[in-house]
Write a protein that binds this DNA or RNA. Structure first.
Lengths: 227, 227
DNA sequence: CGCAAACTTGAGCGTACTCAAGCGCAGTGG
DNA sequence: CCACTGCGCTTGAGTACGCTCAAGTTTGCG
């Protein structure tokens, strides 16, 4: 049985099953050992809105974005998934989003019928999947607060702090996604994201060795903005 | 067993179990017949953020809002729940939102341990609750698109269309919530909501016999705006 | 090295916000 | 019966934050 005490308390972070579930012989590993591995080049679609939701994924390396498009091309990025994070779990029959690899990406893929078989054998798995859905819900709700009520500066800081927590960071945060991806995630334009980051750099709160590498220089005021 | 084919295809609408599950002797009713009934006056809190999530609710009459507050008083309304709709289901141990009665409201209340007992007896119920969580997730994600990428006009129209579908409408839509509630739901200010509705009225797309009563006059262009 | 894509910067604009006043309706009391 | 009051809503004027359009600049890759 999976460790139920490890549901993330961080609503901005995708759910992960306990990484060190060594005392659970049939824990996480039993789910993903049956999985196949699949490699995607940058910008390759994993699935599209409306596709039959017959698989679930876990990022091994790389990064994935899920998003929705409006008719006129406006895009809302729903979430980014980094190494160790799972996505593509649907209760219904079809996906409600598009998912694309951001960079070269390796995914573990588990078929839904395999999932169902395992659930039949060990009903606790259903509970775990429910909690995964619930943690995605929590994340989406927190994102609504950001999109509905926060300024551009607060959004960008919130994003950077979240990435900082999720990336295994030696010094700098490596951003796999473009400014356009970030903008579409935060409900801003690419120019506003760029300007806001420049402002943070001018205020010496962050450093940008390159556009995709961010170093947090002064955590305190950033955390305050991320209330 | 509940009718699994009835997961709402409308992401903007809270989930309802099939209303006419007459062929399922132990369907929805078996869940809520064990429930107690509780009455709330307008603006009375149902639960607060951080409270132990030990109960789940179903609106009999009235309306409920769930929301989150930031330190400085900014508020994001997550959802409105009308008659027949359920809320307060959490996978974790505490609520992530505040819930308040908007008007005088009657709720069915089911305790979580009762829910757990029923799940133990009939595991399909867990599946139904998972689907309820999943439909809330879908709604939240659709709301992210609205908050991140839609104009004030599109947001207001989207809200009105959603209310129109959910309220059992004879002619007019009766809004239980204030302009402030709507504004905090749509990520706008009260003035913008008011101005936008006035504009819709001037364009003869809606009529407002009173501030809380809205009549859809020309559905076509409104539906186009709600793409 | 050269090109294209990604990112940054600048100038001007527009949508939605802020601040403020006015309106309308329901409830209350003279 | 009607003024009074309070609250919710509307309307107005001015502003600001983030967007649009348009160069530049940097980066990565062939």
């Amino acid at each position: 049985m999976l460790n139920h005490a490890t549901v993330s308390s961080q609503p901005t972070q995708p759910f992960r099953f306990h990484a060190a579930a060594t005392d659970h012989a049939e824990g996480e590993d039993s789910l993903w050992t049956a999985a196949t591995r699949q490699t995607f080049v940058a910008n390759r679609s994993v699935y599209s809105e409306g596709d039959a939701a017959d698989r679930m994924f876990k990022v091994v390396t790389g990064a994935v974005r899920t998003f929705r498009l409006l008719e006129d091309g406006r895009r809302q990025v729903n979430a980014f998934y980094l190494a160790g994070e799972m996505f593509g779990l649907e209760a219904g029959e079809t996906y409600h989003f598009c998912a694309e690899a951001i960079t070269a990406t390796q995914l573990l893929v588990i078929r839904r019928d395999a999932l169902r078989r395992r659930m039949a054998a060990r009903p606790e798995i259903m509970n775990d999947l429910w909690r995964l859905t619930a943690s995605e819900l929590e994340r989406a709700q927190a994102h609504c607060v950001l999109l509905g009520r926060k300024s551009a500066m607060e959004r960008v800081v919130s994003f950077l702090m979240s990435m900082d927590e999720r990336v295994q960071h030696g010094e700098a945060i490596e951003l796999p996604m473009s400014r356009q991806d970030i903008a579409d995630f935060l409900g801003l334009t690419i120019e506003t994201v760029s300007r806001t980051m420049t402002l943070l750099e001018e205020q010496k709160l962050i450093a940008m060795p390159s556009a995709r590498r961010i170093v947090i220089r002064d955590r305190r005021p950033l955390a305050a903005l991320d209330a």
